[in-house]
Design a protein around this nucleic acid. Structure first.
Lengths: 114, 114
DNA sequence: CCAACACATTGACATCCGTCGATGGGTTGC
DNA sequence: GCAACCCATCGACGGATGTCAATGTGTTGG
């Protein structure tokens, strides 16, 4: 419409336009929440240990000693991983067994392979 | 073999053995440091915006407005991403251009696709 | 050389996070 | 039932983190 103002300034220096659409703020928050759960050395080790067991699951008593932390702390980290959708918890008898959520890590990996 | 002590206790309940070796503590810390950098919504958006530009790079002035934060805060987040090895910074004239480190995100994705 | 610009750094502040000891809630064995 | 066991939750504490205003550093234009 109105070409009264000088709207044709090139400004080729800065301000490169976006070629494709960037991620939305909501999606970024969802993604970041999962990465945040992975952003702790203890939680990475816990995930690795669970994934390394032949049954692909482990109870808390298996995990406290390898990581060298107290039982409440390990329970806390496991809860963070469960809340992030990376682990499941199934209680059998006295023990709580934690297992990987199938495909959860693969889905996360896909978002990085954009 | 000495069958003197009752060493044949089944103990099938807890304590599942490891099938393969878990990640080392050092490797877990290195991995977690990168994920930690991705564990913030603003940083995820910044990465996405940089990746979405046609030149695959952007300067700070391009990034402050989309994320709606102050310039020092954006600079801080960009520094975190650079320190994590996910972005590079190249200064040309007055502007600082940030670009993705080639393969950095792919490498991270590979660690998840174990 | 001085003003304007883009960006990094600093200092400060509120909040979040990881960790532990203590405690509570279920489950099993005697 | 009662003791022993596994685990989750609570409360507390020190340290890390995200954010901003103010300031510093380097570069460009007049």
């Amino acid at each position: 419409m109105g070409t009264t103002t000088r709207d044709a300034e090139q400004l080729s220096a800065c301000c490169t336009p976006l070629a494709v659409e960037a991620i939305s703020a909501d999606d970024a928050a969802t993604l970041a929440a999962k990465f945040k759960a992975l952003g702790d050395p203890t939680r990475v080790r816990l995930l690795s240990i669970v994934a390394s067991t032949d049954a692909a699951e482990a109870c808390v008593c298996d995990l406290t000693e390898p990581v060298g932390l107290s039982q409440p702390t390990v329970s806390h980290h496991l809860k963070v991983l469960v809340d992030a959708g990376l682990l499941t918890r199934s209680k059998r008898g006295i023990w709580s067994y934690y297992a990987l959520v199938p495909g959860a890590l693969d889905d996360l990996a896909s978002t990085l392979k954009l």
